[in-house]
């Protein structure tokens, strides 16, 4: 168990290293105008040159990367070139918003898609057909299109919710709820339909298993069979889908946060990449990748717990 986790963390670190390397070199191509963009339109060429030296942009790419790695290894991810905020500070300000958005959505999706998926698998009939049709519609409409429609109707036309975020440090729970409701609904709708569809087919697959018939023949009640046995065996498939959705959402919120002007990681990602703010982009990428690796590790551990066969091997 411990070796498994250590192994996974080890390979995660290697992936992390590869991705930071890749991103850093990619950013190199967009860093040509950094000094000019920081200083603005009225800066003289001498000013620009001075700024470049200050940021180390006059150094060759390799030594820049090594310098960054050396700093990062000591836990210093530097400060943003454009806002002078420390990268750790900037991210820790934004991460709660994005995580609140994504985790809330995922939890709701998990609960609802289990309920709906099980109902569709067991009852079949209209609910099953409804789930199948909804899954197609949910897949068809990108969540940001939904979000646009929601903002237009519920925030702008009807004024039920704030159109832009009222989430700020120290904002009370009400502000969080009001700001997150519409984006969460947009994320949930598009995730729920495919989630329910996946749960449905996983449950159907399990219901077809021989052991279910045997359990029935032993006089075990349908409820116990469904919730103790079938759901447990169907859970790994569901978890995998949820983890994929979670990872997908970390990217997808970029657009959603923009629409609702939410001060989350997505907005930070757009700002920092469009400006070419290397330290900040690196920070955002590293955090995102760490979250992705952690989520995958958690899912594997959960699957091991759910499925003793995997646990042993």
């Amino acid at each position: 168990m411990v070796t498994f986790i250590l192994k996974r963390i080890g390979s995660g670190l290697v992936v992390l290293a590869a991705i930071s390397c890749l991103t850093f070199f990619l950013l190199y191509f967009s860093s040509t105008n950094i000094a000019r963009n920081i200083l603005g339109e009225y800066a003289t060429p001498e000013q620009v040159a001075a700024k470049q030296a200050e940021l180390g942009l006059d150094q060759p790419i390799f030594s820049r990367f090594l310098a960054w790695v050396a700093e990062a290894l000591t836990g210093n991810f530097g400060t943003s070139w454009f806002t002078n905020e420390s990268v750790v500070q900037a991210i820790s300000n934004r991460l709660p918003v994005t995580l609140a958005l994504v985790v809330t959505s995922i939890v709701i999706i998990a609960i609802l898609s289990t309920l709906i998926g099980v109902a569709a698998a067991v009852k079949r009939g209209w609910i099953d057909r409804a789930v199948q049709i909804a899954a197609v519609i949910g897949d068809a409409i990108p969540n940001f299109v939904l979000a646009i429609v929601f903002v237009t109707i519920f925030a702008i036309q009807l004024g039920f919710f704030p159109a832009t975020s009222s989430i700020q440090p120290g904002a009370d729970g009400g502000a969080w709820v009001a700001s997150l409701t519409l984006p969460v609904i947009a994320l949930v709708i598009s995730g729920l339909t495919s989630g329910a569809q996946q749960v449905r087919s996983a449950v159907i697959k399990q219901l077809e298993k021989d052991y279910v018939r045997t359990l029935r023949s032993r006089g075990i009640s349908e409820g116990v069979i469904l919730f103790k046995h079938v759901l447990r065996s169907a859970a790994p498939a569901g978890l995998t889908v949820l983890s994929l959705q979670f990872i997908g959402m970390l990217g997808g919120v970029v657009i959603i946060e923009q629409i609702f002007a939410l001060p989350g990681m997505g907005a930070l990602a757009v700002q920092s990449t469009t400006l070419g703010d290397t330290p900040l982009v690196m920070g955002v990428v590293l955090y995102t990748v760490i979250i992705v690796i952690l989520v995958n590790l958690l899912v594997d551990l959960a699957n091991g717990w759910l499925n003793p066969k995997v646990r042993v091997s």
């Binding site: 806002t83 002078n84 905020e85 300000n93 975020s165 440090p169 120290g170 001060p263 907005a267």
Partner: peptide
């Protein structure tokens, strides 16, 4: 001073309530 101004102006930044890029109070 890059993140918290120290001046003599009419207002003082409430750094705790501020998020760079989102709002300054």
């Amino acid at each position: 001073v890059k993140t918290v101004p120290v001046g003599s102006g009419p207002y003082v930044l409430d750094a705790k309530a501020s998020v760079n890029g989102s709002q300054f109070v």
